[in-house]
């Protein structure tokens, strides 16, 4: 398996906590699957403008530190229920920029998780080129 790229390296602990809140099953992924998850997210960002990668990093910093105001703890130090409540607050923000930012990060998390063939298999998705023949 290819080594992870590095654009999200500094914010990886926040990303990990974020992904695990979006997809609770991610908490039981082994290290190899986390490496793959990061690789997929990095690949998705690789060919996009550098400004987008900067925005993603910035959004993750925002997620890490904003809970200080409400819970006196950073995101990674919150329990799962509080993490979910905080993300729900972003998802339902009256500001479209905040909602869209959250939606973008949520998309990356889902891409990293469900974009893995193993995850697809785990949820019972098994499309193949053989189509109907695979059922016979």
């Amino acid at each position: 398996m290819a080594a992870p790229l590095t654009s999200l390296e500094p914010v990886f602990p926040v990303l990990r906590a974020f992904v695990s809140t979006i997809v609770p099953e991610a908490t039981i992924l082994d290290e190899e699957r986390w490496v793959e998850l990061r690789r997929l997210i990095d690949l998705a960002l690789r060919d996009r403008p550098a400004s987008l990668r900067r925005r993603v990093r910035l959004a993750l910093h925002f997620i890490q530190w904003l809970p200080l105001l409400r819970y006196a703890r950073p995101f990674t130090a919150l329990d799962p229920a509080r993490r979910a409540r905080f993300l729900s607050f972003l998802e339902n923000s009256p500001l479209q920029t905040v909602r869209s930012g959250f939606f973008g990060l949520r998309t990356l998390a889902l891409l990293g998780y469900y974009g893995q063939p193993q995850a697809a298999a785990e949820i019972g998705y098994a499309a193949t080129a053989r189509g109907w023949d695979a059922l016979r």
Binding site: I22, V23, L110, Y113, I123, Y125
Partner: peptide, 23 residues
């Protein structure tokens, strides 16, 4: 496909996952 489907559903967390797990 799994990722596009996951992205299309609203929300996150266990309820979101439960639909995906019913693929």
């Amino acid at each position: 496909f799994p990722f596009v489907t996951a992205k299309s559903l609203a929300g996150f967390g266990p309820e979101h996952s439960s639909f995906l797990r019913a693929f």
